[in-house]
Amino acid sequence: MGRAKLPRKSTNIDMTAMCDVAFLLLSFFILTTKFKPAEAVEVNIPSSVAAKVAPEKDIVLVSIDKDGKVFLSIDDEGQKEIIANAINTTKNLNLNVTAFKQAKFFGSSFAQLPQYLAIPEDNRKANALGGIPAKDSTNNEMIEWMRYVQQAYLGKKMNLLLKGDNVAKYPAFKNVIDAFKKNDFLKFQMVTSPTSVPVGTDLWKNNQKGLTREEE
């Protein structure tokens, strides 16, 4: 007796649903990805156990690159305009305020600033610049920069960030914090990449107990 012939099942799979899922995920990742903004100044940051996420708004960022050169960047264009005007009135440099507003970072002495702003935006390279002079006490322009910043942000909220390179030497760092201190910026934050707390240490024990860290 012959068996009843089973109807042959098709091995076709409808890919449409899978395709839908794939593209849904794709659009999710595209929309959530925030590309790292092209770093004007290349800095390899050290790691720390600090858990607080670095602020992204109202920042005044001072970067120290691996050679100890100091750069300043400000995200708020309105404040940059105030600073540009302040520099123009006090230093008679005739800076191009629009170019100053668009500049992502500053890393030259005041005398070279008009020349730097004349360079087209895309061609501005941090390593071609000498950095803001901060070394000697006689011609410490970092202090002046911080004074302009302080005047521009008077009474407004700002986050002072310091981003130093791993191999930058301590004197460069010290010069910058001295410039901060001179202008009464006594609170600042250092940008670091997060690492986990080593097991067995006091901080780790506190975290296990659920104690919150004193970050202030």
């Binding site: 794709l26 990742f29 720390s48 607080k52 996420v53 250092m190 940008v191």
Partner: peptide, 21 residues
């Protein structure tokens, strides 16, 4: 493309360490 975006997404945001002078 999904794999590409997963790998290029920066998962860890930089943290900030406070220092009061």
């Amino acid at each position: 493309l999904i794999t590409f975006f997963i790998f290029t997404t920066t998962m860890s945001q930089p943290t900030a360490m406070k220092l009061n002078l």
